[in-house]
């Protein structure tokens, strides 16, 4: 008997530059963190293999989450939205706990993605929890922001790893629960990517 074919999910990382999108992927996939900042140009694609509970049946399902780490350049966002967001099934909306403006910026990112991919599950990640928050945040402001949009969210730290695995698990489970049926992918792989 052959092994179950994995389910492939395309997930996009959204958010302004330097909020930590690349670092979150690196922490999640490699369990590593690097303090140096290297700006992402274009997109980097990483596959994360996960085993999660099948929300529509008993047992576990293998998921190949194809993570699109997209550069946080707002001026090119709409020009490139079809290139990047076509076929996306979930969004990580990443803000920086130390920069208040990155939270409000998530609306434009989510709007751009949804204009291409539709109303797909979105999970807010407020990253850099290990650092002091931006003092301009009013008490309860972050909670209110996500509650108003109906997006679940959590604090994360790519540096310490806090919240990272929980975030990936929650978004994948939400996507699977929203799917009409678990449609396996023939290859389980994303598009080929130069190393």
């Amino acid at each position: 008997m052959s092994a179950p074919v994995p389910v492939r999910l395309k997930i996009c990382m959204a958010g302004d530059a330097t909020v930590g999108k690349t670092s979150l992927i690196r922490r999640s996939v490699l369990d590593e963190y690097d303090d140096r900042y290297i700006a992402t140009l274009g997109t980097k694609i990483t596959k994360k293999v996960m085993s999660v509970q099948d929300p529509k049946g008993a047992g576990l399902v293998t998921v190949h989450a194809i993570l699109w780490d997209i550069m946080g350049t707002p001026t090119l966002r709409d020009l490139l939205k079809e290139a990047y967001y076509h076929g996306a099934e979930g969004i990580f909306a990443v803000a920086d706990h130390t920069r208040k403006e990155t939270l409000a910026a998530l609306d434009a990112w989510a709007r751009s993605i949804r204009s291409v991919a539709g109303d797909i599950p979105t999970l807010g990640l407020v990253n850099k929890q290990d650092l002091d928050p931006d003092p301009r945040f009013a008490p309860g402001e972050i909670e209110a922001f996500f509650e108003k949009r109906g997006w679940p969210w959590l604090y994360t730290s790519a540096k310490t790893g806090a919240g990272v695995e929980e975030g990936f698990g929650r978004l994948v489970e939400t996507i699977l629960a929203d799917r009409p049926s678990l449609k396996p992918d023939a290859s389980g792989d994303g598009p080929r990517r130069p190393s």
């Binding site: 274009g42 997109t43 020009l79 490139l80 079809e82 290139a83 598009p191 990517r193």
Partner: peptide, 10 residues
């Protein structure tokens, strides 16, 4: 290259 053909279409 990821996204390149769709960008070309755009």
């Amino acid at each position: 290259y990821p996204g390149a053909w769709r960008f070309k279409a755009t």
